[in-house]
Design a protein around this nucleic acid. Sequence first.
DNA 1: GTCAGTCAAGACTAAAATGGTCGGAGATCT
DNA 2: AGATCTCCGACCATTTTAGTCTTGACTGAC
Lengths: 161, 161
Amino acid sequence: MLKLSKKADYALMALQYMAMVRSGETSPFNPNRIVNTKEIAEEHHIPLELLAKVLQTLAKFDMVESQNGPKGGYLLAREPREITIAQVLEAIEGPLGIADCYHEKDEHVSCEQIEHCNIRTPLLRVQESIFHLLSSMSIEDMMAEPPLIIVESRKTKGVQL
Amino acid sequence: MLKLSKKADYALMALQYMAMVRSGETSPFNPNRIVNTKEIAEEHHIPLELLAKVLQTLAKFDMVESQNGPKGGYLLAREPREITIAQVLEAIEGPLGIADCYHEKDEHVSCEQIEHCNIRTPLLRVQESIFHLLSSMSIEDMMAEPPLIIVESRKTKGVQL
DNA sequence: GTCAGTCAAGACTAAAATGGTCGGAGATCT
DNA sequence: AGATCTCCGACCATTTTAGTCTTGACTGAC
Ligand code: SF4
Ligand code: SF4
């Protein structure tokens, strides 16, 4: 439950990797270099074709830029701190909502029991909190892995319901 | 994405309803009365058979108590405030985890790329926050719907990452 | 004791979402 | 021109979800 999909997982991994490359952490003399799908796939042992599709989606949402042709690949389209987890998830999985009764576009697909639902309002609060939390964390916040520095400030600020 | 299943939805609705009945809000002279599956299903327009299964599960997890025979049914097994959303979700959907690499029981089902994963630690923080949020909200907190009172105190206290 | 009303438990199906694959069309570098 | 590489959409297999059905066991009222 509440598990994010493989695709979302892959997207986050790829973005984090690209952010690391870009910052020069992997190849100090060559920041901002372009990475291609294969590199990311092999690095993380994920199926190439699937990652490709994920990256395409990310490109469509302007989170990465694609460069075609040989020596082509992807690079981040924005600052790592400007890419939030919420944005990534929404790009990959569509608008996120804890229940089907919120953003359900065309008002007729909505929930059967919306008229007699007693938990809609409280659940909305939960959803907002989760969304807030996810929006308060960016790719940059995910770049401190091996030592895991304390990234208290930004996140704490964001989440108080 | 992050959408909770119908069954979870139904479970929360049923519990909230039972809590309301119990508090005497629906039938003032008869608090603590037993409600049966059919009543809940009709009240909320949800398929009876499915709700039955959900309630069975809840009974197995000691969130409700079942009474057999005519005029039988269910009633809450604990105080509404002692039943958190997290508990309900875990009962219905199994242990909740944002990624497959945590509580994945027998260490061999786990994620393929766990060895080369760069986002595991940061994601764990996110998961803990969400879990904390879900644990800080109980059925009791969901009982103020029409007016929606401000239930700031308890929840705010719980969520600071 | 019978009997109707209720929970319990499982098998079963249909439909949707997920995870993953393929192949061709374009782009671009050498 | 040719070799790479991304792009895009179609495709398939498996799993999950939602819902149904059947059977059985328990209980209280009559
Ligand atoms: S049941 Fe209530 S909360 Fe769940 S989707 Fe329908 S309206 Fe929203
Ligand atoms: S990819 Fe990383 S975070 Fe996602 S499940 Fe595997 S180990 Fe956990």
